[in-house]
């Protein structure tokens, strides 16, 4: 009896503690304070799923607590039916309700997965900004093919303009993510993946690799900065006036393993550098390895 009571209060205590702990930091969380519609939609799915699952979770908690209390062995007042081993209405409930929840979830899962496919371009009427991201040990190289510039560990882009990122790796498997804007996708050598993101308004965020890749993994973070259109143009101009250029030799030097690499600007980029990096791993085969882009879909 005391055990059941102690047990219930312990649950409340533990949950309370966890909630208390979540108080600090919640406001700076990229997932709880998203800066773009993708993360917003993905997070919404999480909360929707959480809510519907309460139909199952809450009864379990209540039943566990209630039964421990009422049917404790020393309580002779409760009914004791030692051979009650089957009751078909319960079976229907116990299979049916979770099944119904899963079906309901399915109606969110399938459209949501299609809508939030990382390969879906984001259609806002504004031409997207193309960026090519290369994962290296242990930093990120961003190539802007239209502007013919490249940057290490800093991704700057105008808010309100969709980002169309092509991603590859020049080393082991990495995973590219800017959590405040959207989910992740793997970066693999010899292959190209795509991610489409959008920032609602100017903001300073962070992005990083989340697939463990070696000694420098913990520091493989970059600044992701959404700016106004004018600030973006100014930034591009700043990069274009940098002294360094990313030719083949400079690239080879950059690709060597290094950690805690400071933000570096390159005012000029070797043509087709991104495709060459991919082709290098595919043994000299320079054809576009990416799948066809599906028709534009909107992310809510």
């Amino acid at each position: 009896m005391r055990q059941a009571l102690a047990y219930r209060s312990q649950i409340i205590l533990a949950l309370g503690l966890a909630l208390l702990c979540s108080g600090c930091g919640a406001l700076t969380s990229p997932d709880l304070d998203p800066k773009g519609p993708i993360t917003l939609a993905e997070r919404q799915l999480l909360f929707d799923g959480l809510t519907i699952m309460m139909i199952v979770i809450v009864p379990v908690f209540i039943m566990a607590a209630l039964f421990c209390w009422r049917y404790r062995g020393t309580n002779r007042n409760a009914r004791y039916t030692p051979n009650l081993a089957y009751y078909w209405p319960i079976e229907i409930l116990v299979w049916g309700v979770p099944a119904a929840i899963i079906i309901w979830l399915g109606f969110h899962l399938v459209p949501g997965t299609h809508r939030l496919d990382p390969y879906n371009p984001i259609d806002t009427g504004v031409a997207p900004l193309e960026v090519q991201a290369v994962a290296q040990d242990w930093k990120w190289l961003f190539i802007y093919p239209e502007q013919n510039i490249a940057v290490v560990n800093e991704l700057v882009f105008p808010a309100g303009t969709p980002l169309a990122i092509k991603i590859t790796s020049d080393t082991v498997m990495n995973s590219f993510v800017i959590p405040a804007l959207g989910g992740q996708i793997y970066a693999m050598a010899g292959m190209q993946t795509r991610l489409h993101l959008l920032a609602n308004e100017p903001a300073e965020m962070w992005g990083r690799n989340v697939q463990y890749s070696g000694t420098g993994f913990a520091d493989q973070q970059f600044r992701a900065i959404a700016t106004t259109k004018d600030d973006f143009d100014a930034w591009v101009a700043k990069v274009k006036s940098a002294a360094d250029t990313l030719d083949a030799g400079a690239y080879e030097t950059l690709a060597k393993p290094s950690q805690k690499v400071p933000v570096t600007y390159y005012s000029d980029v070797e043509p087709d550098l991104f495709d060459r990096i991919i082709a290098k791993w595919r043994h000299g085969d320079i054809t576009d390895p990416a799948p066809a882009i599906p028709a534009a879909a909107t992310a809510e």
């Binding site: 997932d31 993360t39 939609a41 993905e42 997070r43 799915l45 999480l46 799923g49 959480l50 699952m53 199952v56 979770i57 379990v60 908690f61 979830l105 969110h108 899962l109 949501g112 997965t113 809508r115 939030l116 990382p118 995973s175 993510v177 959590p179 959207g182 989910g183 992740q184 996708i185 989340v210 697939q211």
Partner: peptide, 22 residues
């Protein structure tokens, strides 16, 4: 049950895109 709950959440690919490897 809490673990089962988080599993069902992760089963939704868009949620997993955010939560995977975290």
């Amino acid at each position: 049950c809490i673990g089962g709950l988080s599993g069902v959440l992760l089963a939704m690919p868009p949620v997993d895109y955010l939560m995977h490897n975290t």
